[in-house]
Design a binder for these strands. Structure first.
Length: 190
DNA sequence: CATATGATTCCA
DNA sequence: GGAATCATATGA
């Protein structure tokens, strides 16, 4: 009853991405509070899969809003997306991290695996009994940054399309490059 | 048909 | 810093 409805998803991915932070996704009884998302805005967005037009792979992406778009990346990780705006728009929001009871859900691949999402869920409705979303229960302080892993998309790589809960410790990557933790050098072989 | 590559993660 | 690993997109 309090579930998010089609109207929630039928908006620009940019709006939905921001609105999704802090909401809870429910799948097969597992609940996860979404803390990090990224918006992908259709064919004009060179970082979005929709840039290649309607293909076998992107078919779910061009489907009606409020449905699942799942794809395999790097040959080993599933990425779960929520379709937005309107059928044919090619808009979607990637769920990058969430707080899951007793499990790690930080990182697109980890989130999808923890929530048991696979490509078999493509085009499934996100407004059903076993798969739906619930509105936020508390106010959330949302931070913004550029998207991750899309450096190849030129000017689109710098667009502030990544949203995350500033108070959560479960975001997949640090806001700035506060990554002071210098990467260890490969140790000399013994 | 052959080839290049990516909305990542893990290990050293 | 670099490998792992494969479906999809793209070009011949």
């Amino acid at each position: 009853m309090t579930r998010l409805t089609r109207d929630f998803f039928a908006r620009d991915a940019l709006v939905v991405a921001k609105a999704l932070v802090g909401t809870t996704i429910v799948h097969q009884g597992k609940r996860a509070r979404i803390v990090e998302t990224e918006a992908y805005r259709g064919p004009k967005d060179l970082a979005c899969h929709a840039r290649a037009g309607l293909t076998k792979r992107t078919k779910p992406l061009f489907g009606p809003p409020g449905h699942a778009y799942v794809f395999l990346i790097y040959g080993m990780h599933e990425c779960f997306n929520v379709t937005c705006k309107a059928e044919g728009a090619g808009h979607a929001v990637l769920i990058r991290a969430a707080e899951i009871e007793g499990e790690r859900g930080d990182g697109p691949g980890r989130f999808a695996r923890a929530m048991r999402f696979t490509r078999a869920h493509n085009s499934e409705s996100l407004m059903t009994e076993h798969l739906h979303l619930l509105p936020r229960e508390r106010r959330v302080r949302i931070a913004v940054s550029a998207r991750v892993g899309v450096a190849y998309s030129g000017e689109w790589a710098d667009m502030p399309y990544r949203f995350y809960d500033a108070a959560s410790a479960h975001v997949s990557k640090p806001p700035k490059s506060a990554i002071g933790s210098a990467t260890a050098k490969p140790r000399p072989r013994s």
